[in-house]
Design a protein around this nucleic acid. Structure first.
Length: 203
DNA sequence: ATCAAGATTACCT
DNA sequence: GGTAATCTTGATA
């Protein structure tokens, strides 16, 4: 069973490392959101790294703005942004202050509070068994299921109701690497990491 | 003040 | 597999 107490919460030290290292290490860890008594929890299974220094696709590449300022915090903060007029995407800031690095959470495997996630996402029951694989299989979907929005941007993941608990590292042969999805700049960088074979991956 | 682009999704064929 | 929907942000004037 997942320990949702603070005992195994990832600390600042975990996040203040290079973004590519943190991105890979986040696979298999469990993202938690506590709303009073309610707990939402899901395993992180797909991420992408964004590095403001060399990566033209990163929001932070052209320097700090009001929108992206959270990305310039030190590692361990939560960066949520709005895009395409409809969706939120959530990121974990990494590295040292002013680096402008973050890891986008692209897909998760639901563990706890699944009924609440279904309600948040669809506002109805599942239509079929396999629709569960469409619940959190994309960055916008993850935020919808968890109820993440602008309000959550800037939260400190080491000291708030949103946090990540430690789990054993995935074996290297379980980690897939590919180009990132849906970007046009710096598109060839192989900075997407995912758990091979997991049915909850984005399509 | 105006404009174009975007780290996506859902729905249609 | 293609595409419309939708609106915030940042850049330019």
């Amino acid at each position: 069973m997942i320990d949702t107490t603070q005992n195994l919460v990832l600390t600042r030290k975990f996040f203040i490392r290079p973004v590519l290292v943190v991105a890979k290490d986040l696979l298999g860890k469990v993202l938690i959101k506590k709303d009073g008594n309610r707990v939402l929890a899901a395993r992180i299974i797909e991420v992408e790294a964004y590095d403001g220094k060399v990566d033209k696709a990163s929001h932070s590449f052209n320097g700090k703005t009001k929108r992206n300022e959270v990305m310039f915090n030190e590692g361990g903060y939560f960066y949520v942004y709005f895009t395409y007029g409809a969706h939120f995407c959530c990121n974990v800031v990494t590295g040292k202050r002013n680096n402008g690095e973050a890891v986008l959470i692209r897909a998760v495997e639901p563990l706890l509070g699944i009924n609440k996630m279904i309600e948040n996402r669809f506002g109805r029951e599942l239509k079929s068994e396999k629709e569960i694989y469409n619940l959190t299989s994309g960055p916008g979907k993850v935020c919808k299921a968890f109820g993440f929005n602008k309000e959550h941007s800037g939260l400190d993941l080491t000291n708030s109701s949103v946090f990540i608990v430690n789990q054993p590292k995935l074996k290297n042969n379980m980690i897939g690497v590919s180009k990132r999805i849906g970007i046009t700049k710096s598109a060839s960088l192989p900075w997407r990491f995912f758990e091979i074979g997991n049915p909850y991956l984005s399509k």
